[in-house]
Simulated assay, not measured.
Amino acid sequence: MKDRSETGGISRRTILIAAAGAAPALALMTNAAEAKIAQAAVKYQADPKDGKQCDACNFFVAPNACKQVDGDIAPTGWCLLWVKKPA
């Protein structure tokens, strides 16, 4: 029987070991992606600034949340992470 490394194939054992090793790393990345930034860190304010407000931001989630910032977010608020929604 030939060694799989000579034939260029990948053994089932190699795939299973790689998958088992990748699972914890994927779990850590998922948890890190869900972490949100404190309102004070991004200078969140409940009032608009220079005509920019949360309900026009790409990160805003109606009715009062944000994908990036923790806590209740006013649709008329603003923070340093503000990014205009795509048209």
Rank of each mutant, 00 (worst) to 15 (best):
G21K: 10
A38R: 07
A35Q: 07
V42K: 14
M29I: 13
K36S: 02
A20M: 07
A20S: 10
A23M: 13
A35P: 01
P24G: 05
L26T: 00
L26W: 01
Y44P: 10
D50Q: 13
Q45F: 05
A27D: 06
D47M: 00
E34I: 13
L28W: 09
A41F: 15
P24R: 07
D47P: 00
A23Y: 10
P48Y: 01
K43G: 04
D50I: 00
A23N: 04
V42I: 07
K43W: 09
D47I: 00
I37R: 04
I37N: 01
G21L: 06
E34T: 14
Q39L: 11
V42N: 14
A46K: 14
I37S: 02
A22R: 04
N31C: 04
K36R: 06
A23P: 11
A41M: 04
A27W: 13
Q39T: 06
A25T: 06
P24H: 08
V42Q: 10
A40I: 06
A38D: 10
Q45E: 09
G21S: 11
D47H: 05
A46I: 11
A25G: 09
L26P: 02
I37V: 15
A20L: 15
G21V: 01
Q39E: 01
L28R: 00
A22H: 03
Q39M: 06
G21H: 07
A22P: 15
L28C: 14
A22T: 10
A25R: 12
A23T: 13
Q45T: 09
A40R: 14
A22V: 09
A25Y: 12
M29C: 12
N31V: 12
I37P: 00
